[in-house]
């Protein structure tokens, strides 16, 4: 039985997850869950973000693990392989996911970093198509990848296999346009499980709120709900909101449908769209510019006028 479970996670970490994402993505597309938002520019961007990191970033991480670490930490290979499985599992889960929480949160809270993460939020839809959608610089510097690779080098490779598998399933499911968590809210005897679940891990409801185009409906929370595998970080740090509802619209209210190459390769390639955050002279954070342009007494108005500021 253990061998069988081990084989599942081994396959998941190689070909399993990409194939699973592809299958669910095709189902979402067939069910019309992307609506009319998936135009040519979005399709190219999503496909490039899904494929290129697998070709470019994976060899980079492999080099880090196989060449750099033996050079930087000689003699420490497997030094902590004595750590019992469940302790190793807990250490990897906390180290990996808390690091990703911070990497993610800082890209939202530090204006300079926002444009490296913007691509993930520009999609006006949720689903497998946009789950891997990231600027290539953001993907290359995924801090938790290097931390976990280091822990694997130090001897925690076996528990890491399971943590990474479970984490990828949770984060992928949280991005899916299939609201798997809905029955937990609707069926009364499942409510206590929902209470624990939505505080412990990312669900479609909490993560979709993070991708909302606006906060004014009380459901969207794009300046919070940063958790990836665990939502408990948002509970601890007060950055989370749980409503058990899904936002009406996703993406950025000031999205201009910037060219796929600019979204993928900014700041190497820039957008030609005037006023775009990704253009040569564009603002660092458009959201902040919109807020500053409005007088203080009109700040309540800013959210209600937001749709008219949509430049798409």
């Amino acid at each position: 039985m253990i061998k069988f479970i081990e084989a599942i996670f081994q396959n998941l970490s190689t070909w399993g997850l990409p194939v699973l994402v592809l299958i669910v993505g095709v189902i979402e597309f067939a069910l019309g869950l992307y609506k009319k938002h998936w135009n040519r520019n979005e399709i190219i961007l999503d496909i490039v973000c899904y494929t290129v990191p697998k070709i470019v970033v994976r060899p980079f991480v492999a080099y880090f693990g196989l060449k750099f670490l033996p050079y930087a930490l000689p003699g420490l290979r497997e030094a902590f392989s004595w750590i019992p499985f469940w302790w190793g599992f807990l250490i990897i889960a906390v180290f990996d996911d808390l690091t990703q929480y911070w990497y993610h949160r800082l890209h939202h809270e530090i204006p300079f970093l926002w444009r490296f993460h913007r691509t993930h939020h520009s999609a006006p839809y949720m689903g497998m198509a946009m789950a891997s959608r990231q600027n290539v610089i953001y993907t290359i510097f995924f801090s938790q990848t290097y931390l976990t690779t280091t822990l694997v080098y130090l001897g925690l490779g076996y528990p890491a296999l399971f943590v990474k598998g479970i984490k990828s399933l949770i984060t992928t499911a949280a991005h899916s346009s299939i609201p798997w968590d809905k029955p937990f809210y609707k069926i009364k005897w499942l409510n206590p499980i929902a209470w624990v679940l939505e505080r412990l891990i990312s669900t479609p409801a909490t993560h979709h709120a993070h991708h909302a185009a606006s906060n004014d409906d009380g459901i969207g929370h794009y300046k919070g709900n940063f958790g990836n595998m665990f939502f408990v970080w948002d509970i601890i740090f007060g950055t989370g909101i749980i409503t058990r509802k899904y936002p009406a619209a996703y993406g950025l209210k000031y999205y201009q449908g910037e060219e796929w190459y600019a979204q993928f390769l900014w700041p190497i390639l820039k957008s030609k769209k005037e006023g775009s955050e990704l253009s040569a002279n564009g603002p660092m954070v458009s959201d902040e510019v919109i807020l500053k342009e409005l007088p203080k007494e009109d700040s309540d108005l800013k959210e209600s006028t937001a749709p008219s500021l949509n430049l798409t």
Partner: peptide
């Protein structure tokens, strides 16, 4: 205000990182 909150939360995070090792 955001910078202050980040600093406070980072300090709490350091304790959380140490927690599984201390418990082990």
């Amino acid at each position: 205000a955001i910078a202050n909150r980040i600093v406070k939360n980072v300090l709490v995070s350091l304790l959380i990182y140490a927690l599984p090792i201390v418990l082990m």
